[in-house]
Nucleic acid binder design. Structure first.
Lengths: 147, 147
DNA sequence: CAGAATCCTTGCAGATACTG
DNA sequence: CAGTATCTGCAAGGATTCTG
């Protein structure tokens, strides 16, 4: 059965009765994966457990604040676990839970798709932008590339 | 080969040289799927082509503004196509492109995962919140449920 | 019907400083 | 080292109005 039908069936079930968007399970999951950092952190932890600072280094452009918060959210959802070692100074290790590992499979499929199709997407964007530029400035000025 | 390794390999390749986050292809794709609406729209269109108003009805809590914008973005990325029928009043039909359809497969995998594990995630949240409430109010006051 | 344009609010996220 | 706390901006997104 093609994926299309799997999704179609689900969709009909959702909308069947009152589709309460706030309770849609897919929303919750995709909102999480959609935020800038969750996915990258999960991917980083897919290799092996990491300490706080290690994750920061693995994901260079995340702020301490956002890292803490994202880790909390992932922990709250049961995707990662947090283990504190009472050393001095303290060290904390994060690792994927079984649930978190089970996410790797579909996540990997998505990442693979992204890589396989990034060129197509890029081309589509260029084409779209070119077409848009045409319609709004048929005789090109010097606008392109301007601020 | 387990998904874990697929992701691990990619991750190492990315971080190998200077990991320019802004050019990471996965970011672009996941940022799009992560926004509140793109995924729902794609799923709706998975069934069959829809007109503008139909999509609105299928995704009840989206504003006209956001729908227009999200459709534009999806079109720009080549995932959907837009066909205008010069009737009066005008009608516009959106449908998935081949590229968009190819996304259904991994997307379906993710949605299936979300559905299969929503109970586990929910339980994890409850447990986490309960534990958090304990540590910050060992002898419970009346705070829980307050504003 | 399908959208463009405008205003306006909010909550997310960055920077900074402090703590155990 | 691994966080918390606070302030502040800025931009995503909702409501509303106007048009072809």
């Amino acid at each position: 059965m093609p994926a299309r039908q799997g999704l179609a069936v689900r969709f009909e079930q959702w909308s069947a009765e009152a589709f309460d968007a706030s309770r849609c399970p897919v929303r919750g999951v995709l909102d999480r994966l959609g935020d800038k950092w969750s996915t990258l952190i999960v991917i980083a932890l897919a290799r092996r457990p990491h300490r706080f600072g290690e994750i920061r280094r693995a994901v260079p452009d995340i702020s301490k604040r956002m890292l803490t918060q994202t880790l909390r959210d992932l922990e709250r959802d049961g995707l990662i676990s947090r283990q504190v070692f009472p050393t001095k100074p303290p060290s904390v290790e994060y690792r994927l839970t079984a649930l978190g590992e089970s996410l790797l499979e579909p996540l990997n499929a998505l990442v693979a798709w992204a890589e396989a199709n990034q060129a197509r997407i890029g081309a589509a964007r260029v084409a779209f932008d070119a077409a848009a530029a045409m319609t709004e400035a048929p005789l090109p000025g010097l606008e392109v590339g301007g601020r």
